[in-house]
């Protein structure tokens, strides 16, 4: 197993309320090498918190997270995050931004530059290598965000709702692009989203989280062959998986709503 989560419990520090919120409560699952896993759940269910812990940005209250058998306790080069917001350094060019993670690998500058260039090309931005982020559209900025993570050659790619802020058409293009790129690299990937169609389209398995505190509600296998055409989203098999997950999440949102009014 590549990535193992065992009874992961995370409290989230809330500065404003001066308390620790139980965000993730006993999450257990395994992710195989080269597998693409999506985590979906109602908003506020702790999925982003969980991903931040996998990245090593947040400590666990209890339980364990291991990557290739090694305990995760801090950020490392074996994981790379694609953030929800592009979060690019505005004063660096596209290539400069893709270099950001690579620079920290302590490899010769020339090689780092070459690697950055390859990934700029891979995400389809070869004409924009010397452009600044503010000159790019939202979708193009997210391509840079993705290239920056891929360029460090991580064991696991972590994606935190990277397409949530894009318009519907750009989002579909980016989903398709992500699959094309992933098909090239076959990185183990953990993709957080609240968009069920996106989760089913991208993933080998979809992990459904309960409402807060987040637990694994169910794990749905997506047996749709790859490469997946966007048209697959209209096929009965796809729609059936989507409906099943939708009902599962619906239940959770309703439960959460009741809890909130009680």
């Amino acid at each position: 197993m590549k990535l193992q989560a065992r009874d992961v419990v995370i409290h989230h520090r809330r500065q404003r309320y001066g308390d620790m919120l139980l965000a993730v409560d006993g999450v257990t699952f395994d992710i195989a090498d080269g597998e693409f896993v999506a985590i979906v759940g109602p908003s506020g269910c702790g999925k982003t918190t969980f991903l931040n812990a996998v990245d090593g940005l947040l400590p666990l209250t209890s339980g364990s997270l291991t990557l290739d058998g090694r305990q995760i306790d801090r950020p490392g080069h074996d994981r790379a995050m694609v953030f929800q917001q592009p979060s690019l350094l505005p004063w660096r060019t596209v290539t400069g931004n893709v270099m950001y993670g690579v620079e920290l690998l302590r490899i010769p500058n020339e090689e780092a530059r070459g690697r950055a260039k390859r990934f700029v090309d891979l995400v389809g931005l070869e004409g924009f290598a010397e452009s600044y982020p503010l000159e790019l559209s939202g979708g193009m900025q997210q391509r840079v965000n993705l290239a920056r993570a891929l360029a460090v050659d991580p064991e696991v790619l972590l994606l935190d709702e990277p397409f949530a802020a894009l318009d519907a058409q750009t989002r579909e293009t980016m989903q398709q692009e992500l699959l094309r790129i992933w098909n090239q690299t076959r990185k183990t990937a953990v993709f957080i989203t609240h968009d069920i169609v996106e989760a089913v389209y991208l993933a080998d398995r979809v992990i459904v989280f309960t409402a807060r505190p987040g637990r694994v509600k169910e794990i749905v296998r997506v047996d749709i062959p790859r490469p997946r055409d966007l048209r697959v989203k209209r096929e009965p098999g796809f729609v059936e998986i989507e409906r099943r997950i939708w009902e599962s999440i619906r239940e959770e949102s309703a439960r959460d709503g009741l809890a909130a009014t009680a």
Partner: peptide, 22 residues
Amino acid sequence: SLPNFPAEGFPGTDMGATRVPR
């Protein structure tokens, strides 16, 4: 060895390599 992906995308699907045109 990058890039050695099919620049024209995957034949028979609409999964093409979407380049952003300059």
